[in-house]
């Protein structure tokens, strides 16, 4: 058999493909629950500054919680960064995450520290943002529909099939909405309200911020999300208007936890401290995420929704971040709202 000249070529190609240099600084598996657009620079920037190879997966916070729980015997993630606080608190309560008192705690706002205290320092606040919705002004004008201003307006039969929100099982955003309604209206009325709202929902998405995008393109008229998710679309030039509902609204404290059983604890702590610095928190604005950062020295993005203009409810994180309560509410929602069509 004659020698084949292309064999060398194949070997050369293989060398290029397989020569992914193992990093001397070790690795870090990052479960990221904010917008992918923000996850990416977080991973890249940390890797650039430290040389630690970051393996990042983005999943919604409810899904990440489920994954961390499913992997508890054999954890594969190191840090869970971002996403609404309730699943983080639930994970802390169930012992899925470890206690860590970062030296950065002293620089944080009270609400961020309270989140840490509530969880016995198993999680910490990294940003906050208020819940609300946005609607596509162009579609609204075309259809000649009234402008919604309150939560109650969304159940108006005129908006049949025009409202989009995430599934609270997968998305922390949507669970915050559920918990907000329960706190504002009382549980029974809240579920009656959501059953009415269900008739107007065109789709329950997986990711919490997706409805903002749908409202921006006009695929849906109204999208219920955190306000900062809608701001991203406004700044991209989409014809949407942001609404902070008149009855008042709930808010999230985006959190971060170190997963119990991590194989890279030192790197995880390094990331934890790094993520709380003003320089790191500034990455959010660059990635079109307009939450309010938790470090007092961080600059609040100019475009961030002004908290003083919004009526915020007294959100009871202790109760609604509790394991049993969250599961009970989600089950009731699945039974009465989602499949009770």
């Amino acid at each position: 058999m004659n020698t084949r000249p292309f064999f060398g070529l194949a070997i050369a190609a293989a060398t290029v493909v397989f020569a992914v240099p193992a990093s001397a600084q070790g690795q870090l598996s990052l479960y990221c629950s904010v917008q992918e657009e923000w996850c990416r620079p977080m991973a890249a920037e940390f890797e650039r500054q430290t040389g630690i190879k970051v393996n990042m997966t983005r999943k919604s916070s409810g899904e990440t919680y489920a994954q961390v729980k499913a992997e508890r015997q054999n954890p594969r993630g190191d840090v869970w960064w971002g996403g609404t606080g309730d699943p983080h608190l639930q994970a802390a309560e169930e012992g899925l995450t470890v206690e860590y008192k970062s030296p950065m705690l002293k620089d944080l706002y009270d609400w961020a520290v309270r989140q840490a205290e509530l969880s016995k320092f198993r999680t910490v606040g990294i940003y906050s943002g208020a819940l609300g919705y946005s609607f596509n002004t162009r579609t609204l004008a075309q259809k000649g529909l009234p402008e919604p201003k309150c939560w109650r307006d969304l159940t108006n039969p005129a908006y049949r099939g025009e409202v989009q929100v995430a599934d609270p099982n997968s998305s922390g955003t949507s669970y915050t909405m559920l918990a907000t309604f329960v706190q504002m209206f009382g549980e029974e009325q809240a579920f009656d309200f959501m059953k009415l709202l269900h008739r107007n929902i065109n789709q329950y998405t997986r990711s919490g911020a997706a409805p903002a995008r749908s409202a921006a393109t006009g695929e849906s008229l109204i999208g219920i999300t955190f306000l900062h998710d809608a701001v991203t679309q406004v700044l991209a030039g989409a014809p949407v208007k942001i609404v902070a509902p008149c009855e008042g609204t709930g808010y999230e404290i985006g959190s971060m936890s170190i997963i119990k059983g991590t194989r890279n604890l030192a790197n995880a702590k390094k990331f934890y401290d790094w993520a709380l610095t003003p320089a790191t928190q500034a990455l959010g604005e660059k990635a079109n995420s307009f939450q309010i950062p938790s470090n007092k020295n961080s600059k609040v993005p100019d475009a961030a929704p002004k908290m003083q203009d919004i009526t915020l409810i007294q959100y009871d994180f202790q109760r609604f971040g509790g394991s049993a309560e969250r599961e009970r509410l989600l089950q009731r929602w699945g039974k009465e709202v989602r499949s009770g069509s």
Partner: peptide, 20 residues
Amino acid sequence: TSARHNMATAYIVGRVEAGE
């Protein structure tokens, strides 16, 4: 797929879903 071994298609599905 996992954080360390993600596949192109799984990644793309995620992007599609997020509207990117």
